[in-house]
Design a protein around this nucleic acid. Structure first.
Length: 224
DNA sequence: CTCCGGCGAG
DNA sequence: CTCGCTGGAG
């Protein structure tokens, strides 16, 4: 797996083309945490509307947001889609923050990475990608976030198999990269940028892609 | 495997 | 109008 590719080289190619993506820099850790749940299979532009509504309502911390009745929360986050299930998932996460850490995200993120990751994964509605997004982008902890774009980009280039699972792909990145929060942050953001603008699900723009020099002969690999 | 769902791009 | 979206649960 991975062939002879250097992940640092891939990162460099993407960074040279796209520059810094400054993901989740100005927002509070709380907004990042909320956004990580709301963004599940959803365009970020829709999540921003929901976050903006919560901000306008002054719901800027776990206890405040958890005090909102579930049906009201559903209406607040409605623009993000999946609003019923996301309201429930969000409340599951908030309840955890409150009961386990007194509603203090600062306290929560002082927990050892591996330990906190397991705790987050035990919450109904928090899967591997959401957990890692919270840990990396809200907690600044060095865990690599894998997503559908990462999978698509690396499988199409033949660097990993199409049937690779989340943890194996995550371990692949973390085994070849230093545990650097800033690097993980920027790398994932750049892969999302590439996935959105070039490595489309249908009709990828390989000719103009920053990674075109790594394209296999005869075009990108496809799932069997 | 299906469902959850509003929303914007094309 | 259709498609896909910084997934996860049942």
């Amino acid at each position: 797996m991975g062939k002879d590719v250097s992940l640092y080289e891939i990162f460099q190619r993407l960074f040279e083309r796209f520059g810094p993506q400054h993901w989740w820099p100005g927002e509070t850790p709380f907004e990042v945490l909320v956004g990580a749940v709301l963004v599940q299979n959803t365009a970020w532009s829709n999540v921003e509307k929901a976050i903006e509504r919560l901000r306008e309502a002054g719901l800027t911390n776990p206890k405040a947001l958890y005090s909102v009745p579930e049906t009201e929360l559903e209406e607040l986050i409605r623009p993000a889609g999946y609003y019923r299930i996301k309201a429930r998932r969000l409340r599951n996460l908030l309840r955890f923050c409150i009961e386990r850490y007194g509603g203090s995200l600062e306290r929560m993120f002082r927990t050892p990475l591996k330990e906190l990751r397991e705790e987050l994964l035990s919450i109904n509605g928090i899967g591997p990608e959401t957990a890692d997004s919270i840990l990396l982008y809200a907690g600044n902890l060095p865990t690599f976030v894998v997503d559908a774009y990462t999978h698509r980009i690396f499988a199409r280039h033949g660097w990993v198999d199409f049937d690779i699972d989340y943890h194996t792909l995550k371990d692949y990145f973390e085994s070849q990269l230093e545990p650097d929060t800033a690097l993980y942050n920027e790398f994932h953001a750049l892969l999302v940028k590439l996935g959105k603008d070039y490595c489309h699900k249908k009709q990828p723009r390989c000719e103009e892609c920053p990674l075109r020099e790594y394209l296999p002969e005869g075009g990108p690999y496809e799932p069997v």
